[in-house]
């Protein structure tokens, strides 16, 4: 399959990339990992006249904790998270997520920021970032602005990014003491999108009471879902079996799946219930283990 013809740009700076977006508007697409964009172009579901390749821009591949925030630059690949012992130990939710995005070959190119900017409700990082309370940084002609992840996804494949902005960073707050997270995904085979998946992040006080809870749902609606009622229910309670089960029921009520080739809406809703409870048990165990 051959994509439609386009003009290729490889700017050497972010300023040049932003300028190109300003010039070409809706006719331009950013190419980072390309693992969603290129398949869409080959199917001619996307036919951008201009492709702006940001891979040659130096200094966008940082992955570091700074001033209470984990900063993930635009060119950090999924494989970078998967291979990082630091991420595995300190951000198990992100590590779990990076291991189930597509497959290992795709993860060598696919970027975390691209996974968010593409805004496919079936992508895995949106739910993880909703659970973690992340922010994204959009860089445009007037500089940078930060967007809370909760207001970033405006519809299927649509975000709060303006036409002349590049998503340059995602910022994850450093976990509280006694925090743990987990991402559980049911996929028919490696490389498939989730039938459903659940991201959870919890923090416990010394007595084991939940003081913070984030719950995000993948492929359970037309946009990534933050299960606010489940989160609210968990706060202030010990994560015992009854609490975890009830949170799963609430998350299932907040899910809004549809019937498709991966299963019926009823099946997927039940999957959200089960996966939420399992992810909470795993996350609570990790929090208790001093993660």
């Amino acid at each position: 399959m051959i994509p439609a013809a386009f003009e290729y740009h490889a700017p050497a700076s972010l300023a040049d990339a932003v300028k190109l977006l300003g010039q070409h508007g809706d006719e331009a697409k950013i190419l980072s990992g390309g693992q969603s964009l290129i398949p869409l172009m080959k199917l001619r579901l996307a036919t951008p006249r201009h492709v702006v390749d940001i891979n040659g821009i130096a200094g966008l591949d940082y992955l570091k904790e700074e001033d209470g925030v984990l900063r993930i630059g635009a060119l950090v690949r999924e494989a970078d998270l998967e291979d990082s012992e630091f991420i595995r130990a300190r951000y198990p939710l992100l590590h779990d997520t990076s291991r189930v995005v597509a497959d290992p070959l795709v993860r060598n190119l696919a970027t975390v920021c691209g996974n968010l900017a593409h805004a496919d409700p079936a992508n895995d990082h949106p739910a993880a970032m909703l659970a973690l309370g992340a922010e994204v940084v959009a860089t445009g002609p007037r500089g940078e602005r930060r967007i809370a992840i909760t207001s970033f996804f405006t519809g299927p494949f649509a975000t709060a990014l303006r036409g002349d902005e590049v998503l340059t960073e995602v910022r994850v707050p450093v976990p509280l003491p006694r925090s743990g997270g987990a991402y559980l995904k049911l996929e028919r085979k490696v490389g498939d999108f989730a039938t459903a998946a659940v991201a959870v992040q919890v923090a416990l006080d010394p007595a084991g009471t939940c003081v913070h809870a984030g719950v995000g749902l993948t492929n359970a609606g037309t946009v990534p879902i933050k299960a606010r009622r489940a989160e609210g229910f968990l706060r202030g309670k010990p994560l015992d079996d009854a609490t975890v089960r009830r949170a799963g029921e609430l998350a299932a009520e907040e899910a809004d799946p549809v019937d498709d080739v991966r299963g019926s809406a009823a099946y997927k809703r039940d999957l959200v219930r089960v996966l939420t409870a399992r992810a909470l048990r795993l996350a609570a165990g990790r929090a208790g283990a001093g993660r």
Partner: peptide, 21 residues
């Protein structure tokens, strides 16, 4: 993955990379 090649030592799917990259 039948089209896997190494790009700077990392295995990638060469059907999902432009030659200009």
């Amino acid at each position: 993955g039948a089209c896997t090649v190494l790009l700077e030592d990392r295995p990638v799917k060469s059907c999902t990379v432009f030659a200009v990259q």
